[in-house]
Design a protein around this nucleic acid. Structure first.
Lengths: 173, 173, 173, 173
DNA sequence: GATGAATGAGATTTCATTCAT
DNA sequence: CATGAATGAAATCTCATTCAT
């Protein structure tokens, strides 16, 4: 991967995350990347191709993060690890997450749903913890996770730690 | 408000919600509304003005919904009412909510944050219920609420009722 | 002529003079006249028809002014009267003159050239004054007259009186 | 400057001069220049930007012309040179002058007043010639110059030479 | 006479994409 | 690999004009 190609990916990700995919023109991207507009299409064929490349590239980074949660054997540790997940996302991965979340709201997309592996972990954990309805509990956590992620990515997370604590208490953690 | 103006608002809301504000052209809106494109600009001056009109119009409808939650005096009832809130949104208001949520992810916008009145109700409820940190608890619920709303608006809410039940249990409801 | 029709004529004249015919929309005119846009077309059929009406209306006013110059019998008085002509234009007729002059520069127009009667007067005067080439002298004055009018209509005529004096001297006035 | 950019400038100047800035559409310009409409905006960002470019470009040409007048030392020669100035404008610069003059009549513009250097020359000349009020005389000539230019640019200058002679006589030239 | 809703054509501008260099 | 000129289609917006009331 040449340096300029990476500059394009970086600039595009940042702009897509900030202003949205549709309202980011390839001209803006080229300018932000310090690159000619033509080069974008030499490397990515399409604006959509550029988006795809960004998403794939981001996904690879993400998958690593996920694996950390699976290392725990104690189900409460698994739960705790999953719930605190959004707080562990490094700042430089925020744009990728913002983009992912914003894309969810357009129907024509291309969403890579990353919830599946987590769902499995959660069902397993709640089963071990002898909850009545592990599937529903897992869904509930996934949904809470979405809320937490949204808060982390969009708001200045002021007392976010105490919020997390409040939530964890509900699970006896 | 003339009939055609309303047709524009309806069509635009629907399209904005489905495909996103930026990727919905005024031509599409006009066609969907059965109206000349020029009329859009006679009534709303701007594409952005149209968006503003939609948001204001929607907000009025929403405010009414909110008031229902405040009618309860028992704090647990308040909580229950708030948590089940997303499920009570009538189908025809879904586009407005989808649009609101999707707009949150673009920085340059115009979001009418409707959380403030709910936050107040929640803090009050948790105080009455003698929770240690009512503010944090309120934030936690708001965030869960966002998660629930997202799920309701985006996914086919299969076992959503059992999820809601699972969450309510955590609050002893 | 109804009151509203006159308001339209006034507003249009003013706007045409200030911003140019082509860049003045009928919407602007209607607004400035405090009148519905449709009314313009009830009264004038066309935007161009409105312009024609304005020009005719103005011309009538102008013709009167011209007649004053012809009342003199002494050729030097005629000359003096003609040269000071632009200064005698009442302020409220300035928009009409500005419009006339600005229209000259568009080829597709509609110019009512008012120079003919003056030319006759001038040739007569210069003949009486025994100038060698009365026609050329008349043209020269017409052209100077254009210059004076331009100055009066466009610039803040600071020392315009002394300019006029300087010019008149050349004709021994 | 690429060839196409120049074609745009040329076509636009010609059309602006003939039909006026406001009534010349960018589509017409593109067609006349044998160029896609989009290219206009790649090179000039705006229709107004295109106008600005034309005016600046023209001004450069003009400034050269002006310098010729300053080469004379004899004040009468200076005067003669200035008065015959409009006749010396090469045919291919006429569009630029027409445009300049037509723009003067719109208030919102952007006029590059080129009279200042000439004014200085004139005051100097009239001072040397011991006229009583050199400033007023200078203004008078400037104004006559405007008249001459208007005549040259708008009318078929039939007996224009004899007119010029008539005017020069007044200054003893 | 007067309004204001509505239209359709066209004006300006943006944008993804192509291509010669 | 990289640039930047160029395009054509589409997007936003303007405007003269019509028409029902």
């Amino acid at each position: 991967m040449t340096e300029k190609k990476e500059q394009i990916l970086d600039a595009a990700l940042k702009l897509f995350a900030e202003q949205g995919y549709a309202s980011t023109s390839t001209a803006k991207i080229a300018k932000a990347a310090g690159v000619s507009e033509g080069l974008i299409f030499r490397h990515f064929e399409n604006k959509e191709g550029l988006l795809r490349a960004i998403m794939n590239h981001g996904k690879a980074q993400i998958d690593q993060l996920y694996k950390q949660a699976s290392t725990f054997s104690n189900p409460k540790d698994v739960l705790a690890s999953i719930l605190s997940f959004p707080f562990l996302i490094p700042k430089d991965q925020h744009p990728y997450w913002k983009l992912s979340y914003s894309l969810k709201w357009q129907s024509d997309i291309y969403l890579n749903d990353m919830s599946e592996p987590i769902r499995t972990l959660l069902i397993d954990a709640f089963t071990k913890l002898a909850y009545q309805n592990p599937e529903a509990e897992a869904e509930a956590v996934l949904l809470i996770l979405d809320g937490i992620a949204t808060a982390v990515l969009l708001k200045k997370p002021e007392h976010s730690v105490s919020i997390l604590k409040a939530i964890m208490q509900k699970y006896g953690i």
